[in-house]
Design a protein around this nucleic acid. Sequence first.
DNA 1: CTAATTTGCACAATCGATGGTGCAATCACT
DNA 2: AGTGATTGCACCATCGATTGTGCAAATTAG
Lengths: 352, 352
Amino acid sequence: MRQGKKKATIYDLSVLSGCSASTVSAVLNGSWRKRRIKESTAQLIQGLAERHQYTANLQARGLRSSRSGLVGLLLPVHDNRYFSSMAQTFEAEVRSHGKCPIVVSACRDPEEERATVETLISYSIDELFIAGATDPDSIHTLCEAAGIRHINIDLPGTRAPSVISDNYEGARMLTSAIIEHFHSAEALKPKELFLFGGRNDHASRERIRGFRDTKIEMLGADADDCIQPTGYSPNMTQKAFEAFYEREGKLPRGLFINSSINFEGLLRFMGQHPHETFADIVVGCYDYDPFASFLPFPVLMIRQNTEGMLAKAFELMAETRPAPQIYLIQPELIMPRMALTGPLDDIKDIDG
Amino acid sequence: MRQGKKKATIYDLSVLSGCSASTVSAVLNGSWRKRRIKESTAQLIQGLAERHQYTANLQARGLRSSRSGLVGLLLPVHDNRYFSSMAQTFEAEVRSHGKCPIVVSACRDPEEERATVETLISYSIDELFIAGATDPDSIHTLCEAAGIRHINIDLPGTRAPSVISDNYEGARMLTSAIIEHFHSAEALKPKELFLFGGRNDHASRERIRGFRDTKIEMLGADADDCIQPTGYSPNMTQKAFEAFYEREGKLPRGLFINSSINFEGLLRFMGQHPHETFADIVVGCYDYDPFASFLPFPVLMIRQNTEGMLAKAFELMAETRPAPQIYLIQPELIMPRMALTGPLDDIKDIDG
DNA sequence: CTAATTTGCACAATCGATGGTGCAATCACT
DNA sequence: AGTGATTGCACCATCGATTGTGCAAATTAG
């Protein structure tokens, strides 16, 4: 009604309807049948609620019921296709359950992660999906203490169910695809296949292991000095490329890049060097980005199955007592020049 | 202490310390000096709080004080570089103010937008940044009624302060850069410069206007039949390209693409056609993406200044009574093969 | 040594919604 | 009509924190 006014509460409606606040509450939260409220009473109150634009104060409800209707997703970063696509899928899924999605990022900083999760807990979130946490087990402890259901995604913990990408298999697929891509040209030599990026987290380790094993199997050479974990920053990765180029006068013909963020390091390098420098390289990137897929050299990519991972995670969340085990989800090898669809394709787009 | 236990409340600490709950509350929320609590009492309580891992129940606090410490950002979508980068910057800024960032997307659906904002209001969020809302004014009404400070970003409203990209200027820069890019080659003819993407929102209209004006000025031809607003979906855009190609047997040499999402439509088209189809095209895209910048044909991009927009928006939010006017932020023209830094570069990355 | 301050804290109402319990009125049935 | 079951709803404690108010005790002033 009046716009500057305070929001209507059940007490306002209680006065207006002549019913008690508890009756109003019951009607408006749907529990009125259980409470044997007359249908006509319910309709009266619902009418008033609508007319006065009543919306429940969810903080009050959450305080009383100690459940908030909030479902959290903790991400390392937003501006990355892998994680933002996860956020997109997550939101749709949570909304379809009638809950409210909360997506937060914590910058791969363990302290920030803890603080963020504590804040979420203070808002009595009902469930938490932990994606890419640097220390899932310490977050597990927090959730456990607060009695909050939680599932790890992307990076596994030992104490809670974890849904992760099969990084080892993915890395094997990617590595062998890179090697095979040279079959028509001059075969790739062991010293020409390098891995850049990643750090000492579970995903990177598995990818490195997959790279290593496959390289040894297929090219028969030890891979250790061809592995350059540069962390997750584009700049460090760029520096690694510069250093390599400085030393060797060229790039390796075969590149395994740990993630699209690291790939940006290669882009920065590219910006400093002419086209010819990249004439015969083949890149495999453990992440999918449609634009990267169409670069002037062959780019093989791994698309992690975020939909599949989230689906599994939601499934586990629904179970009463999910085992704290690791569930592997197979990623997919994407050949060069592929523009795939994503969660955006599901949203409607009507012209005004 | 005990892990399965309920969380400690001020009442628990009240018993443990021998002080009243109000004293505990004052100590823990920092207002204890105002309330003339003895320093030693404060220390005692702080010690207990730490030992028992007390964290305030923010729902209770929010209920009482009707302010939650939450600051919202409403986005159209997550998985888009422009908006996810905005989310990233937003989070950092909000955190630095000691508040809790809430990022939600509403899929460019007016109904969803309203519902989402109502939910946020029900959680008593303190401030709302509305980015890319299809109908900012209707959201304004909601916020107004709830007394929530709000600023529009990216798409302007008439009732609240709006910080938007200077789409007209940006489109002019982009259009003229596309045309000039042909100076060394055979000059571009009017019928060879097309605009694809966008729909009937403020941003698209301004971009189209900038495209139109510049094209007329520089190529001296009416531009109307070279404008194909295809909405924001990659698929519709792809179809537009297919239709054009079907009709003309080639693509236009000069392409103005409304956004990176529309650009993905071109990628899908590319996936269906050989390299040669794109041998001599020049693309201008109203969005910046580092991978797109290195595609096999020249890609000129507009980088919208998200940091600048958010900075201005936060500045306005801090003002007591900001005028409901439009603040234009200049975007930047990015030449081909540029890998720029973004918010990710600010996050630390230490190897474990 | 008494009066006026100041210090330090407890009390209790309150925010808005929930849900267990109890009670009157109505209905069914012998 | 009397007994028991059912219907329809009101009452009230409660969730955990905030905050205005009041009042002893300690301190200072005169």
